[in-house]
Amino acid sequence: MALTDADVQKQIKHMMAFIEQEANEKVEEIEAKAEEEFNIEKGRLVQTQRVKIMEYFEKKEKQIEQHKKIQMSNLRNQARLKVLKARDDMIADLLNEARQRLAQIVKDPIEYTTLLEGLVLQGFYQLLEPKVSICCRQQDVEMVQAAVIKSISIYKDAVKKNIEVRIDQQRFLPSQICGGVEVYNDNGKIKVSNTLESRLELLAQQMMPEIREKLFGANPNRKFMD
C-alpha cells in the first residue's frame, strides 16, 4: 500500500521531531557535562589560587615576623650599648674624680712626701738594680731627693745591697700630671712607671670587676671570679 503525501509528511515531521528531541537532549547533556567540567575546573583554579594566596601571605607573615625579630634584636642591642656606654661614662667620671683627689693629695706636702717615699722605694724593689735613675716633675725635685735619701737606707737594710741613685735633671715628667716618679735601670731600657696616674690606672684595672659589681651588681654571666 503506497504512502500518501500526507503520510510521508507526517513521518518526516515525526522523524524531525525525534531528531530535534535527540539533539535537544544531546545539547542538554553537553551543557550539563560542560557545566560540570566548568565547575570542576573553576574549583581547581580557585583552590590553586587559594593555596597560592595562603602561601604568599604565610611567606609575608614569616618575613614580617623575621623583620620584627631583627628589629627587636637591634633595639635590644642599641639599648644594651646605651647601658654599657652609661656605665662606662659613670666609671670614667669616677676615675676623673679620683684624679682630682690625687691632685688634692699633691697639695699637701707632708702627705705627698710620704707617698713619694713609697713610690721611690717600690721602684727600687721592682728593679733590684745597683744603679737607677729617677725622672720626676721639675717642681718635685727637692721632695724626690728627700724621698731618695730616706728610701736608700730602707732598701739597703732590706736587700743587703748598695744602690746608686741619680735624679735626672735634664728630662722631667710633664707638669700637667698629678705627680709621682718613673724609675729606670742604668741603661734606661727598663722602666717602672710610678706616676700617680699610672698607679691609679693599674689599680683601676685590678679593681674593675669589684668596682663594676659595687656600682651595677654582680654579673650573672660571669663564670670565673679570679
Rank of each mutant, 00 (worst) to 15 (best):
I12L: 15
Q145E: 14
G123K: 12
D89R: 01
L121S: 12
N221A: 13
E61L: 04
L95E: 02
Q205C: 08
A158S: 13
Q139M: 11
V148L: 08
L102I: 00
N39V: 07
S175I: 05
E35H: 08
A34I: 02
V46Q: 12
L121W: 07
E164P: 01
L200R: 03
E28Y: 04
M54T: 14
C135K: 15
N194L: 10
S193V: 10
I40N: 09
S151E: 00
E142Y: 12
Q78H: 06
F172P: 08
K60C: 03
L95Q: 03
C136Q: 08
A92T: 15
G43C: 04
V144M: 07
I152A: 06
F224S: 04
D89T: 06
A218Q: 14
Q71L: 13
Y155K: 09
M15I: 03
R166A: 10
V120A: 08
Q21Y: 13
D186N: 13
A79E: 14
L3D: 09
D7E: 14
P209H: 02
I19K: 10
G179E: 05
Q138C: 03
K62H: 09
E29N: 12
K107P: 04
K60T: 02
E36M: 05
A146Y: 04
L200K: 02
L202R: 13
C135G: 02
G123N: 06
Q71P: 01
E29R: 15
K10C: 06
N185I: 06
I154C: 00
Q71N: 05
L196T: 06
A34T: 14
P130R: 15
I105F: 14
V27A: 07
I70V: 15
A32M: 08
Y184M: 08
L202E: 11
Q104V: 15
M1E: 14
A218L: 10
V106R: 15
C135W: 06
A2C: 02
V192M: 11
Q126S: 09
A204D: 03
N39D: 07
